[in-house]
């Protein structure tokens, strides 16, 4: 992966003899240097969180937001080159608005991921542009109402083409992650940026997938998200950081279907627990070491 593409890596859209586009791989490197972003899809919503490294004491605390609202029910967080992320957000907002104009309905999370995946991919096709230096995580809560069929009369057909399936559910929480290549997948839990390895390991321990769906609730997910960002942060190497978190619930939940910042009180509680969990962990490690020493004696 870390090989250098002698001669074939100097321009975008150029294939190397073994079929790689090195400029896209280098764009991924830009992502891997950025602060960690994560997304968690849980039972009743989605949580997005990002580790914002404080590069200067002179930055105004909590003033520079990194998680953007793209439509009422959609949030986007990203790792990598922040100006590229802002461009991505601008485009995502345009797409969401254009969808509303055309179809008279909010864009679904899957459709936005598709549109933005296509947009990112287009930036890998030409020598006249460079790929995006970001990986974006899109979280959304799609309306759980049954979509209206065009020209529907009464309750519509009960079976057949365009018919309704008894017991079929609609909408719900969704999470997608888009890479610089334009590749995107749906996720139960997504992580990108510098601390993605540690974050992924923690996400995999949570009950997010499975046949019965996730058992994790939104509030639990907020606390897990905070803890994971704290775990992914390397105290010894990295500078201090700020934690920014947003969430989206269904219409019956705390955000009423909207993408919003996690209330300050809940965020601070989550951070307190995250710090505590980390300290407990460190104590355990120390005990382990002491235990081993005693064994040796």
């Amino acid at each position: 992966m870390t090989s250098i593409g002698t001669g074939y890596d100097l321009a975008n859209s150029i294939f190397s003899p073994d079929g790689r586009n090195f400029q896209v791989e280098y764009a991924v490197k830009a992502v891997e240097n950025g602060g960690t972003s994560i997304g968690i899809r849980c039972k009743d919503g989605v949580v997005l969180a990002v580790e914002k490294i404080v590069t200067s004491k002179l930055l105004k605390p909590n003033a520079n937001k990194r998680i953007a609202t793209v439509d009422r029910h959609l949030g986007v967080v990203y790792s990598g080159m922040i100006p590229d992320g802002r461009h991505f957000i601008d485009r995502a907002r345009d797409e969401a608005r254009a969808w509303r104009d055309t179809f008279k309905t909010p864009i679904s999370t899957a459709d936005l991921a598709s549109r933005m995946g296509g947009y990112m991919q287009a930036y890998t096709l030409y020598q006249s542009v460079r790929p995006f230096g970001i990986t974006a995580i899109i979280g959304g809560f799609d309306s759980t109402d049954e979509p209206r069929v065009d020209g529907e009369v009464g309750t519509g057909p009960s079976c057949g083409a365009g018919g309704k399936v008894a017991g079929k559910t609609h909408g719900g929480p969704f999470l997608y992650m888009i890479e610089p290549s334009g590749l995107y997948w749906g996720y139960y839990g997504a992580a990108t940026g510098k601390g993605r390895q540690a974050a992924k390991a923690e996400l995999e321990k949570l009950d997010l997938g499975g046949p019965g769906g996730p058992s994790l609730t939104l509030e639990e997910a907020v606390k897990e998200a905070a803890r994971i960002i704290y775990v992914a942060h390397d105290d010894s190497k990295d500078k201090e950081f700020e934690l920014e978190m947003t969430w989206i619930s269904g219409p019956d939940g705390p955000t009423k279907g909207l993408h919003q910042e996690v209330p300050k009180a809940l965020r601070e509680e989550a951070e307190r627990l995250a710090k505590k969990a980390q300290e407990d962990d460190e104590d355990d490690e120390e005990e382990d070491v002491e235990g081993k020493e005693k064994m040796e004696e």
Binding site: N12, V28, A30, E32, R130
Partner: peptide, 8 residues
């Protein structure tokens, strides 16, 4: 400005 270095 359209070329990434191997370090991104």
């Amino acid at each position: 400005s359209v070329t990434f270095s191997p370090q991104g």
